[in-house]
């Protein structure tokens, strides 16, 4: 996240449908939305905002593949190179017996890797305090925020009238 202080003008909406219409209108009017905050994932918001699809699942696949190769490779190395032991008259390299652990480690690596990646790229971690605009955003308000740093009064007024037109229930400013 940017460390520089930002002057933020934000409007709060009471309903996600109203918010979606407002976001579409802002896009149509070429207003540059800084961010949208909602109490729950609103479907249809990503395309309206023009957000690209998350690539988190690709990362998950890569972590999983690392887990697969690590588990299978390690067991192969132990039982064919490092300390070969015959168990129950089976070959040293008893592939079917390696499958359960290989599967488990694939899942484990993928899950841990993805979760850690998720929190890291979102800038979230235990004890982190990201600035919030309004306490009610995690409750029942849907928020569109504009960065008004260095904007002229006419530009700010245009944003305010945008909020009014689109049915925002409140308009506030905050420096974060």
């Amino acid at each position: 996240m940017d460390t520089a202080q930002k002057e933020v003008l934000f409007g709060l909406y009471d309903d996600e449908e109203v918010l979606l219409d407002a976001v579409r209108k802002a896009k149509g009017d070429h207003l540059e939305i800084m961010d949208v905050f909602t109490p729950f994932p609103v479907h249809g918001l990503d395309p309206a905002l023009g957000l690209e699809e998350s690539r988190l699942h690709i990362a998950g696949f890569i972590y999983g593949a690392i887990g697969t190769l690590f588990a299978f490779g390690f067991m192969t190395w132990v039982f064919t190179r490092d300390w070969p032991i015959i168990f129950g008259g089976k070959p040293y390299w008893s592939v079917p017996a390696f499958i359960p652990i290989t599967f488990e480690l694939t899942v484990l690596f993928s899950a841990i890797g993805m979760t850690v990646t998720f929190f890291t790229i979102c800038g979230m971690w235990p004890g982190v305090n990201n600035p919030t605009l309004d306490d009610r955003i995690t409750d029942d308000k849907f928020c569109i925020a504009f960065n008004t740093n260095g904007q002229s009064k006419t530009e700010v007024d245009r944003l305010k009238s945008f909020f009014k037109e689109t049915g925002a229930s409140e308009v506030n400013t905050k420096v974060i």
Partner: peptide, 22 residues
């Protein structure tokens, strides 16, 4: 314990992607 959650649209998108893959 809330890890600094803000409810950003991008975070919700990643959140849903994470939930689905998990």
């Amino acid at each position: 314990f809330a890890f600094g959650w803000t409810g950003r649209a991008k975070h919700w998108q990643r959140f849903e992607s994470l939930a689905l893959v998990l």
